[in-house]
Simulated scan of single mutants.
Amino acid sequence: MNLSISERKRSQDQIPAAISELQDQMIELQMSMAHLEMTVEQLNQVITRQDAHIQTLQRQLQLVYKQVENQSPEESIAPFDVIADRPPHY
């Protein structure tokens, strides 16, 4: 396949433009990847804090259950009675 001089010149001019476009795309991908890595790290920190909070709440709930189980009937909270516990403005 014999290309004319003008066709060869045109194809040679396209090579630097294509390389420049590929470099721009590579930079864009690297920036996107860096942003995603930062987002994942932030989400990981949030999940770690939430997990610690959930574990604390679970321990507190277990303590409350143990206290309720160990209470005698006299110490327990009386059930709510709608008629007896009516506010005075009724």
Rank of each mutant, 00 (worst) to 15 (best):
Q55D: 12
R59L: 11
A18N: 08
M33G: 02
E28R: 09
H89L: 03
M31R: 11
S11F: 07
N44P: 06
D24F: 01
P87Q: 06
E7G: 02
L3H: 07
L22G: 08
V46F: 01
L29M: 08
S11Q: 15
I83D: 09
I54L: 09
Q58E: 14
S72T: 15
R8I: 10
Q45F: 01
D51C: 07
F80Q: 00
L36R: 13
V46Y: 02
E41T: 09
E69C: 02
V46Q: 11
I5L: 14
P16L: 00
E74G: 02
E75D: 14
R49A: 13
Y65S: 09
F80V: 10
E74D: 09
D81R: 03
A18L: 09
R8F: 01
M1P: 12
I5T: 15
P87C: 06
L29D: 08
A84G: 10
E69R: 09
L36K: 14
D51F: 01
Q58T: 12
E41A: 10
Q30K: 14
T56E: 15
D13H: 06
L22V: 01
R49H: 09
T39N: 10
H89A: 05
D51Q: 14
S76H: 05
P16C: 00
I15W: 00
S11G: 03
I15V: 12
L63H: 14
Q55A: 11
N70M: 14
E74P: 05
M31P: 05
V64Q: 15
L43E: 13
L29V: 12
H89G: 04
I19N: 04
S72V: 04
D13C: 04
S4W: 00
V64H: 06
D85K: 07
I83N: 02
E41N: 08
Y65P: 01
E41L: 06
R49W: 02
Q12C: 08
L3F: 06
V64D: 10
T39W: 03
L43I: 11
V64L: 15
L3D: 05
